Amino acid sequence: MLRGLFAKCPLSRLSHDFGQFGLLGAHATPGLTAELDQHAAAVRDAIEHGGARISRQSLTHYLHGFLDGCRERGWFSAAIEYEWELLRLLAICRMAKEYGFVR
């Protein structure tokens, strides 16, 4: 993936891009599915702790904040395995699909 790709993508574009790579498909291992479930729970907790409900707007707002934090830390993934940042992004995208915010 190109550096900076995530920082400029809205929720639907990011979800589409991950879908193109097959990372959101049904072929996920049980271990990866469990990790994504844990990240999704953390995202839900963070949004709800702030007093909001899960909506397209609140999830997009969380995504932008998360990406800003990644940019500030200079995060760039060149790893072969899933890093926690990538897992969090995948969980956000999976949530967007599950809640019907993106196709």
Rank of each mutant, 00 (worst) to 15 (best):
E48I: 08
L59V: 12
E98V: 04
E48T: 13
T29E: 14
R103S: 12
R13Q: 13
L2Q: 01
R53I: 11
L36A: 07
E48A: 10
A52C: 10
F101D: 05
A26G: 07
H27K: 15
K97Y: 11
L59K: 05
I80K: 11
L86Y: 08
L90C: 09
P10T: 09
I47C: 06
S58P: 01
R88Y: 01
G31F: 03
R71A: 10
W84A: 13
R73M: 12
A52I: 02
T60V: 02
R44L: 03
F21H: 14
L86M: 09
A42Q: 11
P10H: 15
G100W: 08
A28F: 10
A28T: 10
R13D: 12
H61S: 11
E85W: 04
L90P: 03
W75S: 03
L36N: 06
I47N: 00
L67T: 00
W84D: 13
Y99Q: 12
S55P: 11
A96M: 11
S55F: 13
W75H: 08
A40V: 00
P30G: 15
L23R: 05
E98S: 07
R103W: 05
S77Q: 05
T29N: 10
L14G: 05
S15L: 09
L11E: 04
G51D: 06
L87V: 01
W75N: 06
G50P: 02
D37Q: 08
A7K: 14
V43R: 00
G74W: 11
M1E: 15
G50D: 07
R73W: 07
F21P: 04
D37H: 07
G4R: 08
A96W: 05
A40D: 00
T33F: 00
E85V: 05
C93K: 03
A78K: 09
Q57A: 14
R88Q: 08
V43E: 01
S58L: 09
Y62R: 12
L89P: 01
M95Q: 09
M1A: 15
Q57K: 13
E81D: 14
L14I: 12
R73K: 14
S15C: 14
A78P: 00
Q20Y: 10
L11D: 04
E48P: 08
Q38A: 05
E98H: 04
L86R: 12
E72Y: 15
A78F: 09
P10A: 10
G19Y: 08
L14S: 05
H39A: 14
H27L: 15
A46I: 07
A28P: 01
D37T: 08
E35K: 04
Q20C: 03
R44N: 01
